[in-house]
């Protein structure tokens, strides 16, 4: 049973956590918020951006702030699934040989899958079970992953040669997708200052424990959302489908497949987490607005025409947002 005290404590913890991360990462407030939302919603986050923008630093800072176990996997084309999930190795103990499971980097609380699109789909799919089921199956044995668990993946959008774009089934398992943009002038100056003076970057001390995250997750699930807003979310998701009556013209023209029902779940849960982080006790329309793009942008599959013309998905989502009425 969640109490008002739990709510206040959880909101205080995450406020401190946010401040802690922002103390290391310059700018990228939305990215930080998206990462926390994914954490609160038991989701995973994919970060897309060119190298050098601080994606890895962000993840490491988050893990450090949470006091959780962090692991980093650098995805390369020759990376094998066993390199991620682990494998059985023969060990000799007291004169007896036996197979012992050696856990891979996926067994952590915060997993950074760096440049995930550089690995083969086979290796990429090794993360599927961990991301969705929070379990890892090796041979005939299934291992539970420790909560809180979150996969934060990054991918480079410009070096596409020799990459393997994530299949739709896998990318749909990421709760949110955030585009890491280039910092502004002031932010860039601040970055230089932090990295070139004094002791340089120092990861923060943990400000939240696993228990705090569990409590916060429960609080987030209890945050009410109005039925009208639920229907609004459903209409938004349906409007991304070209065959839907709610779809705007450009969606019909450029989209092959719209967002899945998982997108609606992500949007509602993300809105709840967003409201929680904002200190609210109920989901507002602006919470949905804040989560709309990050929850749906990776779930739209453009058709050939859309790909050929390079139609930005964000523009299509803008159309959807403008097209769908707020009230039924």
């Amino acid at each position: 049973m969640i109490t008002e005290r739990d709510l206040e404590v959880a909101q205080t913890v995450f406020r401190r956590l946010t401040e802690s991360i922002e103390g290391v990462i310059v700018g990228h407030g939305e990215i930080i918020r998206a990462a926390l939302i994914a954490l609160l919603c038991k989701g995973n986050l994919i970060l897309e951006g060119v190298p050098g923008l601080g994606k890895t630093l962000l993840v490491r800072t988050l893990a450090a702030s949470l006091g959780l176990k962090f692991s980093r996997i650098q995805f390369t084309p020759d990376l094998m699934p066993a390199d991620i999930v682990g494998t059985d190795i023969i060990t000799e103990e007291s004169g007896h040989r036996r197979f012992t499971f050696s856990r891979g980097p996926v067994f952590a609380n915060v997993v950074l899958a760096d440049e995930i699109n550089r690995a083969t789909p086979k290796t990429q799919s090794a993360l599927l079970e961990a991301m969705e089921e929070r379990t890892v199956t090796v041979g005939s044995h299934t291992y539970e992953l420790e909560e809180p668990y979150i996969v934060l993946a990054t991918q480079n959008p410009i070096e596409m040669e020799g990459t393997y774009p994530l299949p739709e089934a896998q990318i749909d398992r990421f709760l949110l997708k955030a585009n890491v943009g280039f910092p502004s002038l002031d932010e860039l100056v601040a970055i230089t200052v932090r990295n070139t003076e004094g002791d340089g970057i120092r990861l923060p001390e943990p400000t939240a424990m696993a228990e705090d995250i569990h409590t916060a997750r429960e609080v987030v699930r209890e945050i009410p959302i109005a039925e009208g807003l639920r229907e609004y979310v459903a209409r938004l998701v349906l409007a991304t489908h070209p065959s839907s009556e709610h779809a705007p013209p450009r969606i019909r023209e450029y989209v092959e497949y719209g967002a899945s029902p998982r997108a609606a779940l992500a949007l509602i849960m993300g809105a709840k987490a967003h409201a929680f982080l904002a200190g609210e006790v109920n989901v507002r329309r602006e919470d949905i607005r804040a989560l709309f793009r990050v929850a749906l942008t990776h779930r739209l599959v453009l058709n050939f025409k859309g790909e050929a013309e390079g139609v930005p998905v964000d523009e299509l989502l803008n159309d959807v947002w403008e097209h769908v009425p707020a009230h039924a």
């Binding site: 009410p224 109005a226 039925e227 109920n282 989901v283 602006e286």
Partner: peptide
């Protein structure tokens, strides 16, 4: 900010 409708949701719960 959808408080009345959220309140109704809570009342229904």
């Amino acid at each position: 900010n959808a408080r009345l409708s959220s309140l109704y949701e809570l009342r229904q719960r």
